[in-house]
């Protein structure tokens, strides 16, 4: 960005600019389900400090959020509510499935747990672990930012070409 200060006008593609801005200020919904939520809290707290990645503004209302971190196991009773919360979030929105339970049901292959939250909402990033370490969640946030910068959208996840991957 050297020499930018001398130029009064900058040209950029609107789309790229929007993607850059979106990826730099993700607002996750403050929404914890089970054990993984405690690790999500730890990620937001002092040691791991999610705000370094611009994603610390946890919103209590889904209407103000654009990332849903599904932190924990989704029970059959909870699944419709997860979907409702997702529907309440404004577009564009993304979903991170945190932990084995949210990804595939984890150790609970039984009558009570939905075997992966992707049966209810479209998922962009899956984080392995039970629970994933805070580093794991940070990596997921970084991957999501990468995906946003490449123009990835829920419902129609863009499959980037190798060149785009190298650029981002």
């Amino acid at each position: 960005m050297a020499g930018v200060e001398d130029r009064p006008v900058l040209f950029a593609s609107m789309k790229k600019l929007a993607q850059w801005a979106q990826s730099g200020s993700l607002w996750p919904a403050q929404f914890g389900l089970a054990c993984c939520a405690i690790e999500m809290m730890a990620t937001a707290a002092s040691r791991f400090d999610l705000s370094r990645f611009g994603a610390e503004v946890m919103r209590a209302s889904p209407r103000q959020a654009d990332v849903m971190i599904v932190a924990g196991r989704v029970s059959q009773k909870m699944a419709p509510i997860v979907r409702e919360l997702y529907d309440q979030m404004p577009e564009p929105k993304w979903v991170i499935a945190m932990g084995a339970c949210a990804s595939v049901g984890g150790v609970f292959n039984n009558y009570a747990i939905v075997q992966g939250v992707d049966r209810v909402v479209p998922v962009d990033i899956y984080v392995p672990g039970c629970p994933p370490t805070p580093e794991g969640l940070l990596e997921a946030v970084m991957q999501l930012q990468k995906k946003i910068r490449m123009g990835g959208r829920p419902m129609a996840p863009a499959m980037p070409s190798p060149e785009e991957v190298a650029q981002a």
Binding site: A34, G72, S75, K77, I81, V107, F108, N110, Y111
Partner: peptide, 22 residues
């Protein structure tokens, strides 16, 4: 009941040591 996980039932399916994880 929004987090009912069926842990007690799942324990019956695991050996005594495995159930510790639940």
């Amino acid at each position: 009941g929004y987090l009912h996980t069926g842990i007690e039932k799942n324990c019956e399916d695991l050996t005594f040591n495995q159930a510790i994880t639940l």
